[in-house]
Nucleic acid binder design. Structure first.
Lengths: 341, 341
DNA sequence: GACGGCCGTGAAAGCGCTCTCACGACCGAT
DNA sequence: ATCGGTCGTGAGAGCGCTTTCACGGCCGTC
């Protein structure tokens, strides 16, 4: 019957009930906002809660409710730093904004490398979270399959590479890239190069496909000299642009599969003495913050990130509620025309 | 007595015990790796566990152990994107590496803005995690005080601004900046400018203090024209460098309080036709990945990030174990001399 | 004035786990 | 043989909470 000193023994429902002169059940009702409590009882409980600084024990609670009221955003990345990606930062922001009004908590789980992925998988399978939103970037990643097989409510951010039947939300990467390239064509450009993203990432693949589709639609045969693979980084974009200029000095436009790469390309072009958009028109992808402040401001493809995260949370919560239907949402992109093309 | 279909009803300890022909207690012992189990009993349990795909319920477990076996890295940031900061990405990586061999899980909690900070505070106070490592960047941030007051095991990454008595680990920012500046002095530079970090962040303050201390030590009076405030970003560094060149065209060296700013400064210097290190020597801070690949490679101050994260986890785990002593660790930095100075 | 209905409440049964404690089996020492 | 000791095991008591169920008090209705 000893009271542990200091930290450790936080007050329980019973103690609150005793102080308020009611039963555990009533306290529980008040804490959980049940309407079936007499106002004066409610007040008494609220006072006791405040006085004791009572905080419900989530372990005890979720033991009976079978809910944890938290969802995880897991970042599965073989080795590189997803965190540095501003796109990811925006997803996190939108996501926590979307959950701000709910009583759901959001935790981020980083799974770099095999061991960490296993740890994350265990964490999730144990039931620490009610559901997960998974950003898995590369083809070889096994986490999507593992989590799907564990029957955890799951939404993928980005279309799954292997076409597995799993719930996902993505931007219309192909359509966006097609629009971007079509815009270039509409501006009279004919020697349109591309700095594409990694071809083991769906965004890289789809954006490249959109570029090709637009060219084909215009009856232009693809020229391998006009295609380089970047890595979605600024430095990579700069390098790729240099390679492109060397291989195809006559190019008159570039579609970069990400704004970061477009920024790098812009720099290389300036260093090479090519004017933008005079000599070379440039279009990026993402509508990153940086796109508006480049010189010249970058024409780019915007993804409806708020809409996408809303869909993700909707689809996830629906699964958490028990809806088993696998659904997908592909959100339309929007071409943001600035000065670079 | 109905068995819920599909997901939901995972097997319990009892079912495993029944299948293995032993008691709950024995299964628990096996699952938790207790040595006091006869090999054959152990084997029977392991088989049953595998067959039933048993995963322990963490809520039930932590209800009795009063442990969650997870710690949180919380990022408290008023509005900007911490995530884009490569420094943060490295901390995350080192941290999860440090925890890889333990059975502790790491979750990241993002607390941008007041509402989210409250949510995070509630999450932590409820006991969802055993302890927290807190990266709080700005002065006005209330989370450190709130969490400290909640008596949650807590380690701050970075010296607290208000000098509150709380456990923290930091690099010797002042010493590192002093060394960097001294290196510049040792190279014969006398008009040494600085692009300092935000003065509401401890790293910004301390690095600036180190710069001044070195100058004073050399008997050089500080010149306000040689001081600009940056914001730790590359773009900010570029702008600051431009301002510096305008105000003090005769400067012969720059100490930038972060590598990102140094990279921006390098670009501005090149655009302005100043050679590095010929006309202007440049030193950065952080030893970011980018520092090695700039032109010229950047002399910079490296923080012992692995050592720092090890200290953080050590100090945190010690608190989790019950050690109440407030301690701090300030880790020495190391000057990495490359070509820029 | 009796009665069915509703409302606020409390008693109590778990949720799935850990861990103490007691107990029987077996060992070597006496 | 007898004994103290160790070892593996199981029964059972909770951990703090939610939630069903039953119950007493009160309402309006006939």
């Amino acid at each position: 019957m000893t009271t542990l000193a200091g930290r450790g023994s936080s007050p329980t429902l019973d103690e609150v009930a005793q102080l308020a002169g009611v039963s555990r059940a009533t306290v529980s009702r008040v804490v959980n906002g049940s309407p079936k409590v007499r106002p004066e009882a409610r007040r008494a409980v609220e006072e006791a809660v405040a006085q004791l600084r009572y905080v419900p024990n989530p372990a005890a609670r979720s033991l009976v409710t079978r809910r944890t009221d938290t969802i995880a955003l897991v970042l599965s990345e073989s080795n590189t730093q997803v965190f540095s990606d501003p796109f990811f930062a925006r997803v996190v922001r939108e996501l926590s904004a979307a959950l701000a009004d709910t009583d759901l908590n959001l935790v981020l789980l980083a799974a770099r490398g095999e061991r960490e992925q296993e740890k994350v998988a265990r964490y999730v399978r144990q039931g620490h979270v009610d559901g997960v939103i998974l950003m898995s970037l590369h083809r070889e990643d096994t986490l999507p399959a593992v989590l799907a097989e564990a029957r955890v409510p799951l939404v993928l951010s980005g279309r799954p590479l292997d076409g597995h039947s799993v719930c996902y939300v993505d931007a219309d990467n192909t359509g966006g890239a097609r629009d971007a390239t079509a815009h270039l064509l509409g501006g009279g450009r004919r020697r349109i190069a591309t700095i594409s993203g990694p071809q083991d990432m769906i965004a890289g693949i789809d954006r490249h496909a959109g570029y090709r589709a637009a060219l084909e639609g215009a009856g232009i045969a693809p020229d391998p000299a006009l295609v380089t693979a970047g890595d979605f980084t600024e430095a990579g974009g700069a390098r790729a642009m240099a390679a492109l200029l060397e291989r195809a000095p006559d190019l008159d436009a570039v579609f970069a599969a990400s704004d970061a790469m477009a920024v790098g390309a812009l720099r290389t072009l300036r260093d090479a003495g090519r004017s933008v958009p005079g000599d070379v028109a440039v279009v990026g992808f993402d509508d990153a913050a940086a796109a508006a402040t480049t010189d010249p401001p970058l024409t780019t493809v915007a993804q409806p990130l708020d809409e996408m995260t809303r869909h993700m949370t909707d689809l996830l919560l629906r699964q958490v509620e028990g809806d088993a239907g696998v659904q997908a949402r592909v959100c339309p992109t929007r071409l943001v025309v600035r000065a670079s093309a």
